[in-house]
């Protein structure tokens, strides 16, 4: 049937004024992979009886949508996706403050993410930055196996490395920020410049480099390690590398949208999504991130976070729009214009 729903608000008001009984519902904006989103929505529905309408979009697209809808919000909860847009949304007042009773079960990094944003967001999973290489292409080109960030700047890797453009991808911005924190700002930009000489393409989307590596279109792709693991598990000839110098990481986040129409259900979902049971669902859909609940399990195939040298990533500084704009401009002016 061609159902016509022009006004969610009118309906909400109708419930209030007529007192008609109607099922509880929740509009979920999801920025993780499709099947994970689907599973989260269905499981929450089964667990609570709340009817979930889920829309999956990348975190950038969701951010753009929430911002466009801000004068008349349509969504209730935004679950998943890298932390920066969540922090940005918090900074712009698009999301609401909420302190969940589940907090004491979470890893400290998840809580510090919340605290850096005035409790307007919280960490739900994390994943370390790294890279993956195509073993067949590496052998065909007689290249040594890279193990560190420095290896990627060696002259023999010229034209073999792919990363996303930090202007368009949160993953690549994390890479840029990681180098700043690993090598200092000057050293970091020196690294980006020598890396630039070896880059064959700056892709638009963050996970594109490792997909290209999987299909044999580039030798090395700089991405989040869980994305690389996924390619390997899917059957592509990919080896995942945790760089020896240490590396940055992302915190996948969750926020409640300011002015949500179903605030109670949004909080209910928020608490549920932080529980160990909900986070264990990731295992069923080949999501290899590390869950934020200390009691949740991590997949065997996932990168062992304890073996990775993680830097103390400063999300507050590098997630702020001021720092981001400055670094991106510098990268644009000083790095991207260099000849390759």
């Amino acid at each position: 049937m061609n159902s016509y729903k022009m006004m969610l608000g009118a309906a909400a008001l109708a419930i209030g004024s007529t007192g008609a009984a109607q099922a509880e519902k929740l509009t979920l904006y999801c920025s993780a992979q499709e099947d994970w989103c689907q599973l989260m929505a269905n499981s929450f529905q089964d667990a609570t009886g709340v009817e979930v309408a889920m829309t999956r979009k990348s975190s950038g697209e969701t951010f753009a949508q929430i911002k466009a809808e801000s004068s008349n919000p349509k969504g209730d909860v935004w679950w998943g996706g890298t932390g920066d847009p969540h922090l940005q949304a918090a900074e712009e007042g698009l999301t609401a403050e909420y302190i969940s009773p589940m907090r004491d079960q979470l890893h400290p990094w998840a809580i510090s993410q919340a605290e850096s944003a005035g409790n307007k967001t919280i960490g739900i999973y994390s994943g370390a930055l790294g890279y993956g290489f195509n073993t067949e292409l590496l052998a065909a080109n007689n290249l040594p196996e890279p193990t560190s960030w420095a290896d990627l700047t060696k002259p023999e890797f010229k034209g073999h490395v792919q990363m996303a453009n930090p202007n368009s991808s949160g993953t690549a911005y994390t890479t840029l920020a990681t180098m700043m924190q690993l090598f200092g700002e000057d050293g970091g930009f020196d690294y980006m410049k020598s890396l630039h000489a070896n880059i064959n393409q700056y892709t638009k989307s963050g996970s594109a480099p490792i997909k290209a590596a999987g299909r044999g279109e580039t030798t090395v792709g700089i991405v989040f390690m869980h994305d690389a693991v996924k390619q390997a598990v899917a059957g592509f000839p990919i080896t995942v590398v945790a760089p020896a110098e240490g590396t940055g990481f992302e915190i996948g986040s969750m926020s409640i949208i300011d002015g949500a129409r179903n605030m109670d259900e949004a909080k209910q979902f928020y608490d549920w999504a932080l529980s160990a049971d909900a986070q264990n669902l990731a295992l069923r859909v080949n999501a290899f991130q590390v869950p934020s609940n200390m009691g949740a399990e991590t997949s065997d195939a996932a990168p062992d976070m304890s073996a990775i040298k993680l830097i103390d990533y400063d999300f507050k500084t590098y997630g702020s729009s001021e720092t981001r704009k400055r670094l991106l401009k510098k990268w644009d002016d000083d790095v991207s214009t260099l000849p390759q």
Binding site: M1, M6, M7, A10, T18
Partner: peptide
């Protein structure tokens, strides 16, 4: 004003034509 699910015509028995919505 706009009504969610206009074509189910539930609004016809739900207070129409006096209900504000």
């Amino acid at each position: 004003y706009g009504i969610e699910d206009f074509f189910t015509f539930e609004w016809l028995i739900d207070g129409y034509p006096f209900d504000e919505d």
